[in-house]
């Protein structure tokens, strides 16, 4: 069953042009899903530092939160195991920029704080070198879509 979830996740992500635009991919290991944002020059906001664009960081946190919700939702039966997966919709997102994202690969992982029938609350952190030293974090609310 786990490989079925994996296949659904890959198909769903591959169909979203914006993920390809940013170059984001997802890696899974058991319950855990990690978003990966490989460095690319087009992701830079401030070329002097150079630092990742704040909007790229926001987008990376948001897509990892949504995909993390899907990964846990599929496994817990909250999200229907069907193609295409019906994605949760973002209601709001509060992004906390802790330090500049530098010109390196970035990673992100979501923690589902609450996942109900209609609403979910998710916290997500992004880091580059050390997972314990995030460069940005966000909390968002999401609307679970009925199939």
């Amino acid at each position: 069953m786990s490989s079925e979830y994996e296949r659904l996740l890959r198909e769903t992500a591959a169909a979203i042009p914006y993920l390809a635009f940013l170059g984001i991919r997802f890696e899974t290991a058991g319950n855990e899903l990690t978003g990966v944002l490989p460095y690319a020059p087009d992701l830079i906001g401030n070329p002097l530092i150079p630092a990742l664009h704040g909007g790229v960081t926001a987008a990376f946190l948001e897509v990892t939160a949504i995909t993390g919700l899907v990964w846990s939702g599929l496994r817990q039966g909250v999200i229907a195991v069907q193609a295409p997966v019906i994605l949760p919709k973002t209601i709001d997102l509060t992004i906390d920029y802790l330090r500049p994202g530098t010109a390196r690969d970035a990673f992100a992982r979501a923690r589902i704080n609450r996942s109900g029938r209609r609403y979910a609350s998710v916290h997500v952190e992004a880091w580059q070198d050390e997972p314990d030293r995030p460069f940005a974090q966000a909390t968002g609310h999401f609307l679970m879509q009925r199939g």
Partner: peptide, 20 residues
């Protein structure tokens, strides 16, 4: 097209709106 977040509807991804 490259900013689409929902391939079924063609709606732009929220992340691109955040970046804007």
């Amino acid at each position: 097209e490259k900013l689409i977040g929902d391939p079924a509807t063609g709606v732009i991804h929220g992340g691109a709106v955040s970046a804007l």
